[in-house]
Structures are given as structure tokens and as C-alpha cells.
Amino acid sequence: MSKTRVLIVEDEPHIVESLSFILQRADFEVDTALDGTEALRRLSRHIYSVLILDIMLPGISGLDVLRAVRSDRALDRLPVIVLTAKGQAADRSAAEAFGATAFITKPFSNTEIVERVCQLAAGVSK
């Protein structure tokens, strides 16, 4: 049986590296993208169970990626965890409006993020 696939979209390589490691340890197959363009390219080619999306990305922003995901019929039900470094109300409400499934504010704990990904991958939204 193939592993559940997760896409991490985050421009900070060290965070990507640690996130990938802990999710792989939790038995997920992990893809990564360092910017919005790469993220959209990967989303168009592969099927993911969960998307972890940083909101502050160079070029196409995390919010733009989220909007594109939600306007795509094939992706509109994909669980999306939005990472926000600012933790600010404006970012959060914009992401909420665009259909984010969950929010995790940096700096997060590994346990917190793995648990959330597991829940969403299993189809539990809360």
C-alpha cells in the first residue's frame, strides 16, 4: 500500500528539511516546493493528501497558491494547513476567506504539526 503523500511549500530550507524529516519519520511520503510556482507545478502533477503552505513566499504568495487550489475542481477539497510567521489577524482572516483548513503559527512544535497532518490525512478536520 502506497504512503500518504504530503506537499510542503516553504521557502526556508532548514524548516523544510526538519518538516520533511519528521513527516517521513511519521511514515508520510513528502514532496517539497520552495516557492509558489513550484508548488502549483507539483500540485498539477501529483495527488496529495495534505498541503502544508507557508503564507510568506517569494513571488506567488501562499494566499495566491491557496486561491488557485480552491478554484481548481480537482483540488478544492484538499486539506491545507497554512503556516504563518506573523500570526497576524489579517493574514489569518484572508487565508480563512480563501478556504484554509487549519492554521499553525510559527514557531510550532514537531508534535503539533505531525498530529495535525495525521488528523487531516485521515479525514478528521478537527
Binding site: 526556508e12 510567521a85 510559527k106 514557531p107
Partner: peptide, 29 residues
């Protein structure tokens, strides 16, 4: 600056937790 601080702290926290909790790390990891 706030964004950079949060990014660095996130990376440090995540890596530290791995170092602290993962007993199966190889030397290279």
C-alpha cells in the same frame, strides 16, 4: 526582523526537537 526571528526560531525549535527526541538518528543526520 520579526519575520526573520520567527523563521529562525522555528528552524531551531524543530531541529532541536528532532535532536532531543529521535533516538534513531544517524551520525550524519
Amino acid at each position: 526582523s520579526v519575520h526573520r526571528i520567527l523563521t529562525n526560531v522555528t528552524a531551531i525549535r524543530s531541529a532541536s526537537e528532532i535532536l532531543e527526541t529521535d533516538d534513531r538518528l544517524s551520525d550524519a543526520q
